[in-house]
């Protein structure tokens, strides 16, 4: 029996809205540690790894680990029916082929439940190695989203270069060339405007902008985004889900043939 009650139900909707355009169907794995989702996008160029800890839930009961295969588009439709302040409770039987979502308004004056059919999805699970990254940039999530959007209007490939002076995003296309440099800013009055760069050694990597732009759909989740890079390895783009967990995107680089 699975029963999990999330007071900030809107976090679930923001996570699903952030990933539903990259991944169509995915297995949500539930165990005593909480909810996890790992899936590659349809072109196998990027990977999503989400974890929501059990202690994020006001009530969490998971008698035995289970994997719930779902269409993320259908899940998004169901979560769209929840009020932004609703408490969301998930229920599923161990041998069940459905999962029920219950939405309760804060004043408990409105309760609704939606039952979603589960699917059999055979998804390949990848091992994500722990990496000691050369460069880690924590910046306002809105800034990152804006850079992706602005550069996408100029080119479709971006070189991200982290040096002691800052992080430079460069693209070029038929229109011309664009450079955006983001510098360390630890003195901003508001914490959410700060940019922190931790550089062990300079690194520059090339990526397809359309994936980085798609990752920015997670912007509503968090005030900051963290980009972690190391030579010749996928970039990790991470959004914290408040203090309940994380949503990580990994994107393979474009490398000299």
């Amino acid at each position: 029996m699975l029963e999990a009650r999330l007071v900030q139900g809107s976090m679930l909707r923001k996570v699903v809205d952030a990933v539903k355009d990259l991944v169509s169907d995915a297995n949500i794995d539930v165990s005593s540690s909480g909810f996890s989702l790992q899936a590659m996008d349809t072109s196998h160029v990027s990977l999503i790894a989400m974890h929501l800890r059990a202690d994020a839930f006001e009530h969490f009961r998971c008698d035995r680990p289970m994997s719930m295969g779902m269409s993320l588009a259908n899940l998004a439709k169901v979560l769209k029916c929840a009020g932004s302040d609703d408490i969301v409770t998930l229920k599923a039987n161990d041998d069940g082929d459905t999962v029920t979502f219950m939405f309760e308004s804060p004043k408990e004056d409105r309760v609704s439940d939606f039952e979603l059919k589960l699917m059999d999805i055979d998804s390949e699970h990848l091992g994500i190695p722990d990496t000691d990254y050369c460069a880690t940039v924590t910046m306002p999530a809105g800034e990152y989203a804006r850079i992706c959007k602005d550069l996408s209007s100029i080119g479709d490939t971006v070189v991200i270069s982290a040096t002691k002076d800052g992080v430079k995003f460069t693209t070029s296309g038929d229109v011309g060339t664009a450079n955006v440099t983001v510098r360390q800013n630890t003195t901003a009055d508001k914490k959410e405007d700060q940019t922190i760069i931790d550089l062990k050694e300079p690194v520059a990597l090339t990526f397809a902008l359309r994936y980085l732009t798609s990752f920015a759909k997670a912007t509503p989740l968090a005030t900051h985004v963290t980009l972690s890079m190391t030579r010749e390895l996928p970039v990790m783009v991470e959004y914290a889900i408040q203090d309940m967990g994380h949503l990580r995107f990994y994107l393979a680089p474009k490398i000299e043939d």
């Binding site: 160029v45 990848l126 091992g127 090339t206 474009k254």
Partner: peptide, 14 residues
């Protein structure tokens, strides 16, 4: 010429 790599090239299947 730059070639897009697959994520599986970097993360072994578990």
């Amino acid at each position: 010429k730059l070639a897009q790599r697959a994520i599986g090239d970097f993360f072994p299947s578990a």
